[in-house]
Computed example of a mutant assay.
Amino acid sequence: MANRIITRPLIGGLVLTGAIGVAPAMAADYVIDTEGSHASVNFRISHLGYSWLTGRFNDFSGEFSYDADNPGDAEITVNIDPASVDSNHEKRDKHLRSDDFLAVEQYPEARFVSTDYIPHDDGTATLEGDFTLHGVTRPISIDVEKIGEGEDPWGGYRAGFSGETSFQLADYGIDYNLGPASETVHLQLEVEGIRQ
């Protein structure tokens, strides 16, 4: 099973590494900026091996803690509303919400909770954690890239990351048969947090 994420963190990612600007002296808590639409949880999956179907989850929330001097202590939680799936096609989105795929009435939340953050020498990192989808919780790894951090024009302080991962639908109990080319979901998370 291929598992990867980048946080330039959904869910959830996400968190982490290589600072731009002045780093805070100690770990800080951030809320993911969904109100300002400065974060997104996106996905793509092959359509029968002929093209890429892309989409996003419009409703999610989360928070993370991060210290550029001690990135290994970083933590993140992302909560995703599966019913907010948006592939820009109303009939398909209704099918994705059904029991064939996300079964949103039975499983109204997807969630990522980090367990470890491993920085690398090239300025990237690996974020480990537990991802819950469709009522199944499994460990997953996210490839992370830190985009930057610093003061914003409104007197606040922000940090941003990008994350990517992939997983098999069957690993989360989703077995609707679209053929072997459509078994893997690629998830991308763009996360900008506002320091609290």
Rank of each mutant, 00 (worst) to 15 (best):
N3Q: 03
I6P: 00
T7I: 12
T7V: 09
T7N: 08
P9V: 15
G12N: 15
G12Q: 14
G13I: 12
V22R: 05
A23M: 04
A27C: 07
Y30V: 04
V31A: 10
I32T: 03
D33R: 03
S40T: 10
F43Y: 14
L53R: 01
G55K: 05
N58W: 07
G62W: 04
A68M: 11
D69V: 09
D69F: 07
V78C: 07
N79W: 11
I80H: 02
S84N: 01
S87Q: 08
D99E: 12
D99A: 10
L102A: 03
E105Q: 02
F112Y: 11
D116S: 09
I118E: 03
H120F: 01
G129N: 02
T132G: 09
L133F: 05
H134Y: 08
G135N: 08
T137E: 01
I140Y: 08
S141D: 14
K146L: 15
G150D: 12
E151N: 13
W154V: 04
G156E: 10
R158E: 01
F161R: 03
S162K: 10
G163M: 05
G163L: 03
E164N: 03
F167V: 13
Q168P: 02
A170M: 06
D175Q: 10
Y176W: 13
G179L: 11
A181M: 13
S182M: 07
V185H: 09
H186E: 15
